[in-house]
């Protein structure tokens, strides 16, 4: 009798995932959006690097004027952030970038009559991708790997077709939603209630009304949002070991995309 290989239970299995820590945060304002993340990449208790980039600015070509103004993207840019297993995050970003390039490429501009749909239906339209389309595409990429998922929390930020700030957030298998703000990654449970309170005014009532009248929702200014982002990250750096080293804040408005860097504690 020949023993059959594969009948005995497998002793050890390769684990294709790891947790690289970090936190990602997006806030949408009236005419701007912010996407921010810490720059630490870690595994277990080791810090791999103090300067990794979890956010990619996916942008049409910059003009020389833009470059002179130290902008890192145009107002049509998509701020693309991933957090979780960094190898999957990088792969997802590249997948999306490829789709973006095909979608916006000018090669489709000269089109036979009747085939305008190949050019997003509009020959004169500037080559770019709306946030709505980008988000739907990301869902398809993520869901395409439903049974071997990209182990990441994804957040997109940009301006919608009316020029209003928008944030889209995704779970690892592609469920998504447009939101006013969202935190992903290791510090999500610490920061999210803070944003509920400070951005959406949850549990805030008008004084003297005996908690019968909620504080009215209103857009925060860019300055107020930046203060919240910095407060959120310094707070979570205190209490979470995988968050720290540096903070990258990308701000998109009608001028384009700007990058701010702030140091965080390195301990």
């Amino acid at each position: 009798m020949v023993a059959q290989y594969g009948k005995e239970p497998i002793q050890h299995q390769f684990n294709p995932y790891s947790d690289n820590g970090g936190t990602l945060l997006g806030i949408a304002g009236e005419d701007f959006a912010i996407l921010a993340s810490d720059t630490r990449q870690s595994v277990d208790y080791s810090i791999n690097t103090r300067l990794s980039h979890k956010i990619k600015v996916i942008t049409p070509d910059l003009s020389s004027e833009d470059k002179k103004n130290k902008l890192v993207g145009t107002n049509k840019s998509i701020l693309f952030g991933t957090n979780g297993f960094s190898a999957d995050g990088d792969a997802l970003t590249e997948d999306f970038e490829e789709n973006y390039k095909f979608y916006t490429s000018n090669q489709n501009k000269k089109i036979e009559p009747g085939f305008e749909f190949l050019n997003n239906g509009n020959e004169d339209k500037e080559s770019s991708m709306t946030m709505q389309s980008a988000a739907r595409n990301v869902q398809h990429i993520l869901y395409g790997k439903r049974f071997f998922p990209y182990y990441v929390h994804t957040i997109l930020a940009g301006l919608d077709e009316e020029g209003k700030g928008c944030v889209y957030s995704f779970d690892p298998v592609g469920s998504y939603e447009r939101e006013q703000c969202r935190v992903g990654g290791a510090g999500a449970s610490l920061i999210m209630p803070f944003l509920d309170n400070q951005v959406n005014f949850k549990n805030q009532y008008i004084p003297g009304t005996n908690s019968t009248e909620r504080k009215k929702l209103e857009y925060l200014t860019l300055e107020e949002c930046l203060k919240l982002v910095k407060d959120a990250f310094t707070s979570v750096t205190e209490r979470h070991i995988t968050v720290g080293d540096g903070l990258e804040i990308f701000i998109i408005n009608k001028e384009g995309v700007r990058l701010e860097y702030h140091a965080l504690k390195k301990d």
């Binding site: 999210m192 803070f194 309170n197 407060d231 959120a232 707070s235 979570v236 209490r239």
Partner: peptide, 10 residues
């Protein structure tokens, strides 16, 4: 976790 985040910030 949520309390840590709130307290640390507020």
């Amino acid at each position: 976790d949520q309390l840590f985040g709130m307290c640390e910030a507020l």
